[in-house]
Amino acid sequence: MGILSKKDAALIKDPLFDNNPITIQVLGICSALAITAELKASIVMSLSVLFVLGVGNVVISLMRNIIPSKIRIIVQLIVVASLVIIVDLVLKAFAYELSKTLSVFVGLIITNCIIMGRFEAFALGNGPWKAFLDGIGNALGYGVILIIVGFFRELLGSGTLLGFKVLGDPIEKTGLYALGYENNGFMLLSPMALIVVGIIIWVQRSKNKALIEEA
């Protein structure tokens, strides 16, 4: 990390694993789970959040000294809502099919707790460059979980990755299907997203004992 000092690098690296917004901070689960049935949707969702959180953190951080603390929530919501409208219009223009799959969940980025959480906890007290790094780091941490969940759900559920039939053709019985393998349609249903995230949390906390909660 040549350009970044050690402290700055930590801002990006921490949220990826040990302080992950989804599995540790419990933020942003709302809009994360419903769209992970396909890998592509998860990637687009992560990119949207990356944009909104990166830009939003900088904007809030620049305005941090002029926002009256009593109405800061409304100010923050307006900033996020404007950014999300941009994302929504861009998606509708360039990736129409995907924006249909994501449906209301693009709008729900507004109330994604990661964004408000990072504004409150970081952008209001730090300069723009640090806030930008923090935003990018947290959005990446969010994206990592989304992509892991999307990867497993699409692979096990429909046997494809990004739409490519990586396991062979289920109708013509090629590849793995020739051995009698069947897709697990259960993985495509929404409850499985919760269970996959639960398992990710389990694995992560078994590896890093410091994260285990007190009973």
Binding site: P191, G198, E213, E214
Partner: peptide, 24 residues
Amino acid sequence: AVPPALRGLGITFIITGLMAIGFM
């Protein structure tokens, strides 16, 4: 006796998943 690593958040996720399957 929940496995230590699942305590708190993890087990809540999994229970919610099971409840969601029930609600289906």
